[in-house]
Design a binder for these strands. Structure first.
Lengths: 122, 122
DNA sequence: TGCACATATGAATATTTGTTCATATGTGCA
DNA sequence: TGCACATATGAACAAATATTCATATGTGCA
């Protein structure tokens, strides 16, 4: 068998437990999936967006309402709604001039609740 | 009753549905809690940290092992482990020169699984 | 048709943040 | 004691990102 000594560019230290590393490596999900997961949480990682989502737990709202509720600019809210929509977390419905936004995913609340459990521990 | 016209600095538009806004406002969790929630998700919002956490689902590992597994610098991993530790997501155990890191929260896996459900939909 | 209003969007700016590099700390061992 | 190795840390830099400002788009209504 050919020696498995890979030439690593980045890791500037010796591998201590090759067996564990190999075992873990086989169990890791594909790179792309972990990347997507990080991208999803990145969307949750902003308090403005968290507030918007939480508001939408309660009721469908238009951009203006959300801006007023959060004391923020209509433009800022609009930008963030775009991010949320791209992540398929909210959807919208047009009614004349007004655009109503609502949740597009039932898991969000569960994810938030799990997060709160962590925060409120201890 | 005194007119409830608040002078708003930020919201540069009219409130369309005052009643809904008021109702939602009463249901919103305290500002601080939503902020903390965003901070937690911010920690999850980086693929390096996601990978580290996922690796630790499988086994306790030392810094060097993780760096090798992810083909990254020991320093980069160490910095990220600090972030994870501050968020109380990992804990560590010293064994001589080596420092072993492991998960410090059982909810993380559930949060990740919920996230994957969202990603894999459609 | 033209005005008022709701929303979207692009550029610019300021802030945050991940990685690198250099180096410090701390432990085991010869 | 002194060297080798594992880890931590601080400063610097580059990249990502949230908000603002100006303006565009689109709809209803007088």
């Amino acid at each position: 068998m050919i020696e498995q000594k890979q030439d690593i560019e980045k890791c500037d230290c010796n591998v201590i437990h090759q067996d564990i590393v190999n075992q873990v490596k086989t169990r890791m999900p594909p790179e792309e999936q972990l990347y997507d997961l990080a991208e999803l949480f990145k969307v949750f990682g902003d308090s403005t967006r968290i507030k918007i989502l939480w508001a939408l737990f309660e009721a469908e709202m238009c951009v203006c309402d959300i801006a007023f509720l959060l004391s923020m600019t209509q433009s800022a809210i609009s930008h963030q709604l775009r991010v949320l929509k791209q992540a398929r977390l909210v959807k919208n419905r047009k009614a004349g001039k007004v655009v109503f936004y609502s949740l597009d995913d039932e898991h969000v609340k569960q994810i938030f609740d799990q997060g709160l459990i962590h925060i409120n521990e201890r």
